[in-house]
Structures are given as structure tokens and as C-alpha cells.
Design a protein around this nucleic acid. Structure first.
Lengths: 197, 197
DNA sequence: CGCGGAGTTGGACGCTCGTCCAACTCCCGG
DNA sequence: CCGGGAGTTGGACGAGCGTCCAACTCCGCG
């Protein structure tokens, strides 16, 4: 019965939601399970969020915002294009491996969003967020190292996302950090191969 | 009330399940929805399958068997390593694009299988199936074109799967066939780059 | 022609879900 | 010190879920 600021409840429920989703998938991420994880009665959920779907939308927005900040920081220092590309990909993996629940939750939400037509916009927003972050990274590489790509810039960004997505999908199943790191190193080499000689 | 052979019911229900899963995701693929899609009463579902989970397992096994047959056929004629690699990847995309529901359903099942610990073995089996098919393809390339890889054979196979998985994940969201084709062409070039000079 | 077992299915059981509201508690302005 | 609005929540509602079984129908064998 303790009184808690609505913003604090919101933050606690969002954090609890990430844990519940990562643990048992969207299928088990009910309002009851999330509220219990946060140590609140079920009814508190609907005092903070208008609906279960609205809470998922807020969660996605929060995760995407945090990720785009993190990516911007990881390209700060790099002496060569090789360091830049490799550092960005391995940096992405380091962050994902260090706090896997957020990564798992995001993939889970994207898969779950296919269950209805209006939810599908959510998945598109996630990929727009990804594309924006990676597009900024590709442009930064062009400016810092005077790179010209053998394919359109948009295809470079798309290929980078193919690699990170493919690695993440496999890692979600086998949790093999070392293999993910090797795949990412191979992928970094492939991206470097897209540079015009 | 018409009498139908159990095998025919089984096939009809599996086909209906693929359609329902592709249309609305695992979340909406209830026994009632699948039976209705197949034009049967709900109770027929449990006359054929012991449970909903058992039906999903049979579905996965059937899809994997069909896919491994298809992949084996696509590497039949190829004059060069470039044709071999490019043909296999584009061939995979052609089959997936021609009959997207099966591909969608399989990805949906893998995502859904994270909701419980014992189901997680299902996802592992799917990836074992993929790895087997792609491993055979990599070995065939070695024998037919006397290829030596710059990285272990297992990592080549893993990287190919990263590419197909990443392309599929993106295509599931934006359904952009042309972009998928370009990403796959870039990926084929990257695989060729793994050949020892 | 009749009977027994196989095939078939309507309906019910117990459960979880998202959502909501009436009732309770608490704090602050007067 | 007290009244009232804001904060809080137990419990209920209807819907959908997987599963099961008793009862019905039908066919082939004797």
C-alpha cells in the first residue's frame, strides 16, 4: 500500500517486463506476471499503463533510445577503418552479451508483433531504429576515413544489419559467445571487402 | 461426419497450421483455429495429435525434411564456385519467396519455443537441421571445386547461416524481395572471400 | 440382417488472460 | 482536526485456451 511516484512504478514495471520476457518469452509476459515480478498487485499495471500493448510500445521506445545512445559512443576512438568496423561490431556484441535480457526481449517483441496487423508497425519501427543507428555509423566511416563503397550506402547498412541480426538469432538459440565473436569477425572482414579499392 | 484416413487428417491439419501460423503468429495458432482452418471440429485435432506441442514438433520435422531435400537439389549443376555459392543462396531465397508461409512459420516456431525450457530443444533441433544442410553444401563445394577455406569449415557454414537468417529476419518485416536479393548477392561475395587464395 | 468396435464430435472442465471497478487508505489544504 | 480528492488494490467479468470424455454414427464381419 506504499505510495510510489507513477514514474517510478513505470520504470520498475518496464524493468520487470524485460526480465519476464527474457525468461519466458512474450507468451508468458502477462500483466499478472510482470506486476508480480515488480512486486506489485496486478491492478497497479493498469494504473500506470492504459493497456498491455501500450506498455510494450513504451518498452520498445525506451530500448531503442538507449541503444542508439550506446552505438554513438562506441565509434568514438578508432585509428583505422579496420578498427572502426571491427570495433563497432564487437562493441555491439559486448553490450549485448553483457546485458542479454534486453536483446532477447527486443527479438521476442519483434516476433510477437506479427500476431496482429496493427502491431506490425511496431516491428517496422524497431527496424527503422536499427537502420537509423547503422546508417549513422556508415556515414561516420565515410567521413572519417574517406571511404567509397562498392555498393550503395543503404545496402552497406542493410548488410551490416543482416550480420548482426543473423548472429543474434543464432546466439539466442545456442548462447555460444565464442562462435558469435568469430562470425562477427568474419562479417567485419566482409564489410571491409565492400570498400572500393 | 465424413470418414477420413488419419494420415489425410494429419496432412490437412499440418497444412492448415502453416497457414494459421503464417497469418497470425504462434500466439493465434490455437487448436481451435487450426482445426477450423482445416474445416474440422476442434476435437479432431486431439484425435490425430496427442497435444498441441506434439503437433508443432511433427510440423517442424516435416518442414526440415522437405527443406533438406530441396537444398540438395539446388546444387546439382554449377560450373564454377561463384555459380555454386550464388546459386545456392539465391535458390534458397527463390524457394522461400515462392512459398513464404513455410519460412514464416518456421521462424515463428523458433521464437515461440523460447517460452519454456523443454521446448527450447525444438529450436536447437531446427538449427541442427540447418547446420546439417549447410554443412553438406560446404563440403560439396570443397570436393567439386577443390576449395580451401581461410577459416574452419564449421565457421564457413555458420557464416552462411548468419547471412540467410539475417536476410530472412529482415524480409519478414519489410517483405522487400529486391533488397533481400541484393543482400544475398553481397553475402555470396563475402563467402567467396573466405576462399584461400 | 444385426452387432461390435472403430471413427467422430458436441460440449464441458479448469485454467489463464486483459481489463475494469467499487471500496479502501492516505495525505494535504483549510 | 477533519473533509475530500488522489492513490491503491482485491476481486470479479467475460473470453479464449488445451484437453478430455461420453455419446453418437457408421462400416464390415459373421
Amino acid at each position: 500500500m506504499q505510495r510510489i511516484a507513477v514514474e517510478d512504478r513505470r520504470a520498475a514495471l518496464l524493468a520487470a517486463a524485460v526480465r519476464v520476457i527474457a525468461r519466458g518469452g512474450m507468451a508468458r509476459a502477462s500483466t499478472r506476471a510482470i506486476a508480480a515480478e515488480a512486486g506489485m498487485p496486478t491492478a497497479s499495471f493498469h494504473y500506470v499503463f492504459t493497456s498491455h500493448a501500450a506498455m510494450v510500445e513504451e518498452l520498445v521506445a525506451a530500448i531503442l533510445a538507449a541503444q542508439s545512445v550506446a552505438v554513438a559512443g562506441s565509434v568514438a576512438e578508432a585509428g583505422s577503418l579496420r578498427e572502426f568496423v571491427g570495433g563497432a561490431l564487437q562493441g555491439w556484441l559486448d553490450r549485448a552479451a553483457e546485458d542479454p535480457e534486453v536483446e532477447v526481449a527486443l527479438h521476442e517483441i519483434v516476433a510477437w508483433s506479427r500476431s496482429s496487423a496493427e502491431l506490425r508497425r511496431l516491428a517496422e519501427r524497431v527496424y527503422d531504429g536499427y537502420a537509423g543507428s547503422i546508417g549513422a555509423f556508415v556515414r561516420a566511416a565515410e567521413e572519417r576515413f574517406a571511404v567509397r563503397w562498392a555498393v550503395p550506402r543503404e545496402d552497406v547498412a542493410r548488410f551490416v544489419l543482416v550480420i548482426t541480426d543473423g548472429v543474434a538469432a543464432r546466439w539466442l538459440v545456442d548462447r555460444d559467445d565464442a562462435a558469435a565473436r568469430r562470425s562477427l569477425a568474419t562479417g567485419a572482414g566482409a564489410v571491409l571487402g565492400l570498400v572500393e579499392a
